Amino acid sequence: MSCKILLVEDDKEIAQLTQMYLEAEGYQVTAIGDGSEALPMIQNMKPDLVILDLMLPGKSGIDICRDAREFYSGMIIILTAAEDEMSEVSLLKLGADDYLMKPVRGHILVARIEALQRRYQHQSAIDKHGSLYDAFGIVINSDRQTAYYQQKPLNLTNSEFEILQVLVEHSGTTVSREHCCRLARGIEYCSTNRSIDMRVSGLRKKLIQAEVHSLTIKTIRNQGYRLVGNQS
Rank of each mutant, 00 (worst) to 15 (best):
E160Q: 14
E160M: 11
E160W: 00
E160L: 02
E160D: 07
F161Y: 10
F161K: 02
F161A: 00
F161R: 05
F161M: 07
F161N: 06
E162C: 05
E162I: 01
E162N: 12
E162L: 10
E162P: 02
E162G: 02
E162A: 03
E162R: 08
I163N: 00
I163D: 00
I163R: 00
I163W: 00
L164W: 12
L164E: 04
L164I: 09
L164Y: 07
Q165G: 01
Q165E: 15
V166L: 13
V166A: 06
L167P: 15
V168S: 08
V168I: 15
V168R: 10
V168H: 06
E169R: 13
E169Y: 02
E169T: 04
H170N: 15
H170I: 00
H170L: 03
H170W: 03
S171F: 10
S171A: 15
S171H: 14
S171V: 06
S171R: 12
G172T: 05
G172W: 01
T173H: 15
T173P: 05
T173S: 14
T173M: 13
T174N: 01
T174K: 09
T174D: 03
T174V: 15
T174Q: 08
V175I: 13
V175P: 01
V175G: 11
V175Q: 07
R177I: 07
R177P: 10
R177D: 00
R177W: 04
E178Q: 15
E178A: 12
E178S: 07
E178F: 11
E178T: 13
E178P: 00
H179E: 12
H179I: 13
H179M: 14
H179K: 08
C180I: 10
C181A: 09
C181R: 06
C181V: 01
R182Q: 14
R182G: 10
R182S: 13
R182W: 03
L183F: 09
L183W: 01
A184T: 07
A184S: 13
A184Q: 02
A184K: 04
R185H: 11
R185Q: 08
R185D: 06
G186R: 01
G186P: 06
G186A: 03
G186C: 02
G186Y: 01
G186S: 04
I187W: 04
I187L: 15
I187H: 10
I187G: 00
E188H: 10
E188N: 13
E188M: 12
Y189T: 00
Y189V: 03
Y189P: 05
C190K: 09
C190H: 15
C190A: 10
S191D: 12
S191H: 05
S191I: 11
S191Q: 03
S191E: 12
T192D: 09
T192Q: 09
T192V: 06
T192M: 02
T192L: 07
T192Y: 13
N193D: 09
N193E: 00
R194K: 12
R194S: 09
S195K: 13
S195I: 12
S195A: 10
S195V: 13
